[in-house]
Write a protein that binds this DNA or RNA. Structure first.
Length: 803
RNA sequence: GCCGCUGUGGUGGAAUUGGCAGACACACUAGACUUAGGAUCUAGCGGGGCAACCCGUGGGGGUUCAAGUCCCUCCAGCGGCACCA
């Protein structure tokens, strides 16, 4: 709280960009779009009298940085340092008013010390169902010790730890993971594309069971949905997160096996009211019961289903030969294995109600299984379709005549009473797979006891520094069955083993994913050099305030990744009392992308986009040969990348900033068109010539324009621009300023109040030029902290009545 | 398939409370200044018509004194999810 212009009596405003990962190729003109926008907001808010926190840093651990290092054959320590330096230079050239004294990088030991510290908090906490909050794990241990039925103290340490690992927010478990042999590491669900490939590098990803570190984000599923109501975020993002978490309410039902009634199959359903229409059970091919219940004569068919490729469009299935007992009717229900049942949702088993579920319907038709209608529809149901809507129960014994919602409740109550079911909430969200087998990440602050349980490293022993490794490359292969080999396995023996009290511990060799550092960096910016704590309580309270980060600007690609992870960590820190807000980012704004045309010749090779001639509308040529045009991302490989350096070199940073904002609405994607830059450049030159004479003096009449049309126009413009700035409609605001300037062109000399207001309004967009004019107008303090102009209601009314 | 967003001149876009559609800019056209112009300035620039005027915001329908804006429906484009029981 000691930067220039800081005044404790003023309100705070925290405006933050999603910090970049320092890629090797440097910035293209698309990258600074959001940074320019946030800078304009920061400058606007400063002029409006806020204490503004506007920091920048670098997300330098993780796959992108490591892949770049591998490609160039240089150690990531060197490449990331160079890339950061280059990127910082490029950002500074854009006149972004960051407080560089707060710069942080996720790879600094002083930073990732605290990332590890938070991990320890996760490891040493559990989610208390009663309070719906994270609590220290000691509380749970105390409960266990007091509970005689647990006979806690008689358990071995390993047994205790195995129980605790089912509670800890960070825990190890053998789970089906996304294994990417091409990258030599496992990946989170969020990092795998629909096509089953890695988001980074587009390598194939395979499912296989592996013991990995997990974070219990599912414990927070409900709060992560509920608290979206508290934040001012785009609906699209809120909806994406809600869908990703995927809450469904329904019930669980237990079916006993006919041959062995003590053994049960549990299913989850959102429609317990249709239980009477369940004509068969369907299990996922990987369901643990499949092998044991399948009769010898059906074994072959069932195994064939297990080996069917999961992306087979057609449904396939096989009868296991076994039957379950319907919990209400007591009738036989055949048990099938079906390719369309997913093992990792619900229990991996369903009750199939073909009359009222389209998938079950198709499956039943295919294998000639009975279809029993139990819900009457008031509308006509198309032939060959299941009726999935609501109606009145029929053929359902005690449910007959009830509306769907009532029937659901009654059936749940019945199941509960008979102890064969209960109401249940199911989520699509899975726990977060948190370990990677790569080198370039935060080491875990964890040791492994020879007895086979993990032990946390003491806080005062942090950080666990990343050991220097000459051969940092991952052990990649094409073999989906290759054993993962963490890069840290190649560290020196005296790093890998730790002797303590006569016990030889093995260090955890996995590293954290690149999301770890970005989960909490917005907190560290508030107190970046604190050696004692993560963040001082008073600084946190001041800068986070009520809304947390007041404005967070970044791309939409982080909707279910960074933005979900960071909210989760924040809530844990909130529960444990380290932060004072429930949500980290009060307002989120997604800027669009800047797109560019790329051109390919007849062989499909990309050609230099700057050397294209349009020979006729829609026909393009490169060196006399026809080429095809495509609109998309900018990139070096597409030969259409334009660097901000070259634009700034030619036109200056003011023009560059103004142009990026004038291109169109900030949230929309737009096409870069170098030709059109001259427009805003002309505007700035005209503005300069209007306000500054050839000998360098400000061209002003030293008096106010107290009467007339110009005054009304001025106040109307101030009103409009102020509103547009607040709504971040910068393109429209610039247009208003151009309009005002065009009016001023006709005047010999500009009244001082008009000139002053004009320069002040333009200053957030074109800080260099405005600072210069401001000085020539005789001001000795910076325009950056001058008060934003105000409008007079009277002049505004006059202007409105006239128009 | 489901959910969401978008659709306005040759181009980017403005019109954020239902109130003069096309602000502002690019491109283009004509002219001025000029040895020259890819500099600057002036004028024009949705379509039709000599004109008054008429038509016009993806298509069709509706509500309203008044619709780019609200409602219904269809079409196109973009984004997300996709056997989630």
């Amino acid at each position: 709280m000691n930067e220039p212009g800081f005044d404790p009596s003023k309100p705070k405003y925290y405006v933050l960009d999603m910090f970049p990962y320092p890629s090797g190729v440097g910035l293209h003109v698309g990258h600074p779009l959001g940074y320019i926008a946030s800078d304009i907001v920061a400058r606007f808010k400063r002029m409006q009298g806020f204490n503004v926190l506007h920091p920048m840093g670098f997300d330098a651990f993780g796959l992108p940085a490591e892949q770049f290092a591998i490609e160039t054959g240089t150690h990531p320590e060197i490449t990331t340092k160079n890339n950061i330096e280059n990127m910082r230079k490029q950002l500074k050239a854009c006149a972004l008013s960051y407080d560089w004294s707060r710069e942080i990088s996720t790879i600094d030991t002083e930073y990732y010390k605290w990332t590890q510290w938070i991990f320890l908090k996760l490891f040493n906490s559990y989610f208390d169902e009663k309070t719906q909050k994270a609590q220290p794990i000691e509380n749970l241990i105390q409960q266990f010790e007091k509970d005689p039925s647990k006979s806690w103290t008689s358990l071995s340490r390993l047994e205790q730890e195995n129980i605790l690992s089912t509670y800890r927010l960070a825990y190890m478990k053998e789970v089906t993971v996304n294994w990417c042999p091409g990258l030599g590491t496992v990946l989170a669900n969020e990092e795998v594309t629909n096509e089953g490939r890695s988001e980074r590098g587009n390598f194939p990803v395979f499912k296989r069971p592996l013991k990995q570190w997990m974070l219990r984000i599912t414990a927070y599923a409900d709060r992560l949905i509920q608290d979206l109501n508290l934040v001012d975020w785009p609906d699209a993002i809120k909806q994406m997160q809600t869908h990703w978490i995927g809450k469904s309410e329904g019930g669980s039902v237990l079916f006993s096996l006919e041959k062995n009634p003590s053994q049960k199959i549990e299913v989850f359903t959102t429609r317990p009211d249709t239980l009477m229409g369940a004509t068969f059970l369907a299990l996922a091919p990987q369901h643990p019961l499949v092998a044991s219940i399948t009769t010898p004569e059906n074994k072959k068919d069932v195994e064939a289903i297990a080996h069917a490729t999961p992306d087979d469009e057609k449904k396939s299935g096989a009868f296991t030969g076994a039957y379950a007992i319907h919990p209400v009717t007591g009738k036989q229900v055949p048990i099938w294995v079906a390719s369309y049942i997913l093992m990792d949702y619900g229990t991996g088993a369903i009750m199939a109600v073909p009359a009222h579920d389209q998938r079950d319907y198709e499956f039943a038709n295919q294998y000639k299984l009975p279809i029993v209608q139990v819900v009457q529809s008031s509308e006509k149901v198309p032939a060959n379709q299941a009726f999935e809507g609501e109606g009145r129960a029929i053929n359902s014994d005690f449910l007959d005549g009830l509306k769907t919602s009532e029937a659901k409740q009654k059936m749940i109550a019945f199941l509960k009473e008979k102890k064969v079911g209960a109401s249940q909430i199911q989520y699509k969200l899975r726990d977060w797979l948190f370990s990677r087998q790569r080198y370039w990440g935060e080491p875990f602050p964890i040791l492994h006891h020879p007895d086979g349980y993990p032990v946390a490293i003491a806080e005062k022993e942090l950080p666990v520094t990343l050991p220097p490794l000459k051969d940092f490359k991952p052990t990649a292969s094409d073999d989906p069955n290759a054993q993962p080999q963490p890069s840290l396995g190649r560290a020196e023996e005296n790093w890998k083993t730790v002797k303590k009290d006569g016990v030889v511990y093995q260090r955890e060799l996995n590293t954290m994913p690149n999301w770890a550092g970005s989960c909490w960096y917005y907190l560290r910016f508030i107190d970046p050099r604190n050696k004692e704590t993560l963040i001082s309580a008073s600084e946190e309270k001041y800068w986070m305030g009520k809304n947390g980060v007041d404005l967070y600007i970044g791309g939409v690609e982080h909707a279910v990744l960074h933005l979900l992870y960071a909210r989760f960590w924040h809530k844990v820190l909130f529960d444990l009392g380290f932060v004072s807000t429930n949500e980290p980012f009060g307002k989120l704004f997604n800027q669009g992308y800047i797109q560019a045309y790329s051109y390919q010749d007849e062989r499909g090779m990309y050609v230099d986009a700057t050397k294209i001639k349009e020979v006729s509308p829609g026909k393009f040529e490169y060196e006399g040969k026809p080429v095809t045009r495509n609109l998309g991302k900018m990139g070096k490989s597409l030969k259409n990348s334009i660097s901000p350096d070259e634009v700034i070199e030619t036109y200056g940073c003011d023009t560059f900033r103004l142009y990026e904002m004038y291109l169109g609405p900030l949230e929309q994607s737009k096409t870069w068109d170098t030709e059109a830059i001259v427009g805003v450049n002309r505007f700035l030159q005209r503005a300069w010539r209007n306000l500054v004479s050839e000998n360098g003096d400000a061209l002003l009449i030293d008096q106010k324009n107290s009467e007339g049309k110009l005054k009304n126009l001025l106040h109307q413009t101030i009103f409009d621009v102020t509103k547009m700035m607040s709504d971040m409609r910068f393109n429209a605001a610039i247009a208003k300023l151009i309009e005002l300037n065009n009016e001023l062109v006709a005047l010999e000399k500009i009244p001082s109040d008009v000139a002053k207001a004009f320069v002040l309004m333009l200053a957030p967009f074109a800080p260099h030029m405005c600072e210069e004019i401001w000085k020539r107008m005789g001001h000795t303090t910076s325009v950056a902290y001058a008060p934003w102009p105000t409008y007079e209601e009277a002049a505004l009314k006059k202007a409105r009545s006239k128009s």
